[in-house]
Design a protein around this nucleic acid. Sequence first.
RNA 1: CGGGGUGUGGCGUAGUGGCUAACGCACAUGCUUUGGGAGCAUGAGAUCGUGGGUUCGAAUCCCACCACCCCGACCA
Length: 485
Amino acid sequence: MGTEGFVSSITRQSEDFPAWYNDVVLKGELADYSPVRGCMIIRPYGYAIWESMQGELDRHIKATGHSNVYFPLFVPRSLLEKEAEHVAGFDPQVAWVTHAGGKALDEWLAIRPTSEAIIADSVKDWIQSYRDLPLLMNLWNNVVRWELRTRLFLRTAEFLWQEAHTFHATREEAEAEVRTGLDCYQKVSEEWLAIPVIQGRKTEGEKFPGADFTWCVEAMMRDKKALQAGTSHMLGQNFARAAGIEFLDRDNVRKNPYGTSWGFSTRMVGATIMAHGDDFGLVLPPNVAPTQVVIVPIFRNEEEKAAVAEAIDRFQAALAETPGGKAVRVRVDWRDESPGFKYNHWELRGVPFRLEIGPRDVAAGQAMVVKRVDRSKEAVPLDRLAAELPARLRAYQAELFKRALDFRESNTHHVDTYQQLKDGLDLEGGFFLAPWCGAGKCEKQVSDETGATIRCIPFDSPDEAGKCIVCGGSSERRALFARAY
RNA sequence: CGGGGUGUGGCGUAGUGGCUAACGCACAUGCUUUGGGAGCAUGAGAUCGUGGGUUCGAAUCCCACCACCCCGACCA
């Protein structure tokens, strides 16, 4: 049988990317649909991937001085409505609790779509002096946004995320904080998830409701579409003013503090799937892979089984002696299934390395090492493998990042006319850097006519005089256009 | 909400008025197997989306409703 036959259960990525994605999520047992429309059940394997990135991000958040806190799920209607732009932006997506305790509530309670409003109200008594600032808080929680169209992990009515909320005495300090949040996301995306991202500024039309400006990180998926990997908002004094937060500054003047908020969600599980996966299923970076190395024992009788088991034990003992070896997440698959079944099972789940150990390998003191990303096979002596495994995992992680970066770069194009953008989107897709005048009208026209949006104005896009591809007006730098999730 | 589509064991399907609703996968038990999704045997599992109607007889025809999926508007 050729390699084609084994993947009959997964739609080919090149054939139908969304169907491929659903197959991987459902058949890889990452998540399932729920009885509630638009909500998802995260299964053990999917949750383990989330926990891994969550843990890494939490370390970055704490290392930059933030403390974890908790605020309630319910937000009184009056609080949500204090910041006008904010409520206008979120109103259509809010789920309301209208009854409780067997009767209609006098005041409806919003199930938080995000926590700016309740936090601003809650902390007003905590902030009296400039000495109380900065206030650096982070929440790990769930939020609800009644989305019209949902997709597992990428957009669900309820999702898990982290939302940081901070308050500062000066605008400069708050702006530095917006940067801090964005840098955390870049590090987790690139170093942990092996997904290269582009930092930039959202347009007025795409910014967070109630913010002065929004910065973001954008990533390219393997279908060349963009996915927002995290956002960091400069709230200015908007929420503080609406909630009446004031502090007495060094100069004995009462002022409103400056706020920021930034969030990173379970969407990134979807990003990891779509940034690395292939026709055989998931391809996980070793850092997030719940199992980094799976050992498939092969034997025909009890005698061979015992010999293989002994070789595996010796290998694991040698690995434990290797620096960094104890931290390697190894799993031995003793299930009563055929080897071929196990190969497919673990390839679908994206385990970076598979070791096949059978009678022939025991005799030779080796294992067949199969690398998930390219499915290459190599016979390696077991003692050498034990010594090299931590380094091989690091190299694999770096290789995945490089592969994703190369893919993004080879699918990013500079275009100078609207026609070039249209042709590029239709013919090959990808990211397009094009001059834009800054007008919302031009942005909207592109989006209406092509389905592509301005993902951001990249920070590393150099100053470059040009003519807006839509209206011909003057442009100071290029914006990043792409079709997005 | 507008346009299109689908509802039959856990999943994928067959069954267009007639006997006890069929098949594959998955599941359970046993034996044989195990180097790229093993084989055989036995077995469990379905109020055919819901309600009403037509008929001697409905998964099948009619009406209404419900749910879900795809496209569009909203979005971490």
